[in-house]
Simulated scan of single mutants.
Amino acid sequence: MDHQELRHRFATLTTAHVADACIRTRIPVRCAPAGLHAVVAGGRVAGRACPARHVGSVDIFLEAIEGSSPGDVLVVDNGGRLDEACVGDLVVLEAQSAGLDGIVIWGLHRDTADIRALGLPVFSLGATPTGPQRLDDRPEDALESVTVGDWTVSCEDLVLGDDDGVLLLPAARAEEVLALAERIRDTERRQAGRIHAGVPLRSQVHFDAYLAQRRQTPSLTFRDHLRSVGGAIEE
C-alpha cells in the first residue's frame, strides 16, 4: 500500500477503529504509551516508520531523514527519557522539508511554539527546555529499529496517530486491517445514527436477549453475542 492510499484511507478512520480491527484479526495491538500525544490537538500521522535511535546528537536524525521517503514518519527512540528534549524546531523543519508525514518521539521535544507554527504533526511525551548534555556510543543498528514503550518498530511497520495516540501496524497486514477497520467504522456510524433517531444501543444489540442467554449460559460473553448480531462495539 503506497503512502497516498494509506493517507486517504486513514483520513476517515481513527486509531481506535484500527486497534479494534487488530483485535479481530489477532494481530498484537501495539499502542504507544498513553502519555505520548500530539503536540497540537488534532494532529494526525500515517506513514511508514523511519526509525532513529538517539544517543545525544542531532546527526542521527539528519541521517535518518537522508534515507527516508516522502510520507514516512520519523520515529525517535530516546528511551522515554524525561530529563532532556531530543527534537527541536530545526529537526521538525528538516523533516517537513523532506516531505515526511510527521514525527513520533519516545521522549521529549522543545521549541513548542515554533513546532506548532510549522504545522508538521509531532507526537511526544511532553516538553522541556534543555537539550541533551551527553553523547553516548551509537549502536550499529541505530537506524534499523527503535523501541517505543514496550514495542519494537522498524521500517516494516506503519505508524498511525491521532488524538487517541499512536498505533503501530505491520505494513504487510495493512490492507486486511484497514478493510476491517472501515467495516467497523461503518457499523458504528449506523449504530450512532440510530441512537440519535431514538433507538437505544441496547435495543440494537438485543441486550435483553443477551442477558437472558447469559442466565442460561453463564460463560457467554458479550463479545460472542455481538458477533452473532453483527455489532462492532468493544472490538
Rank of each mutant, 00 (worst) to 15 (best):
D162G: 07
L143T: 13
V29A: 04
F207P: 01
A172S: 14
D137F: 15
V29M: 00
V91K: 11
T14D: 03
I23G: 04
R227P: 01
E94H: 14
A16H: 00
D20A: 14
L13A: 03
E182D: 14
V45L: 06
D89V: 14
D72C: 01
L108G: 02
S124F: 01
D83R: 02
P170Q: 04
E175T: 14
E66L: 08
H206F: 08
D89W: 12
E175M: 13
D20P: 00
C155A: 15
A49F: 03
R214D: 12
V29W: 10
R81L: 10
Q4I: 10
R26P: 00
R215G: 11
D157N: 11
V146A: 11
E66I: 06
H225D: 05
T12V: 10
V199T: 14
T152H: 08
Y210G: 07
I233S: 12
R138D: 09
R227D: 15
T128W: 06
D164L: 12
S154T: 13
R202T: 13
P129H: 06
G102K: 00
A38V: 02
F61Y: 09
R30Q: 09
P218W: 13
T12H: 10
A127N: 07
L135E: 10
F207W: 03
G88C: 05
V159P: 00
E234Q: 10
R24Y: 14
A179Y: 01
R44K: 10
D101N: 13
G42W: 04
A212P: 00
G193M: 06
D186I: 04
V148I: 11
L178W: 04
M1I: 02
G149Q: 08
Q191R: 01
V92H: 04
A41M: 02
A64P: 00
A181G: 03
D164S: 14
D141G: 05
H37K: 07
D111G: 05
A49Y: 13
A19L: 09
I60D: 07
R7Q: 11
G67Q: 02
S219M: 07
E182H: 10
T217A: 14
L93G: 09
P121D: 14
L36G: 05
A174I: 02
H206Y: 07
L90H: 10
G131K: 07
I65Q: 07
G71T: 04
L160F: 12
H17N: 14
F10C: 03
P129G: 07
R134G: 11
L226Y: 07
W106H: 11
A179W: 03
V148R: 02
D83G: 15
D111H: 11
V153C: 09
F10Y: 05
L93W: 09
L143G: 14
G80Q: 04
G67T: 09
R26E: 15
V39C: 09
R7P: 01
R215P: 00
D114T: 07
P200F: 13
V45T: 04
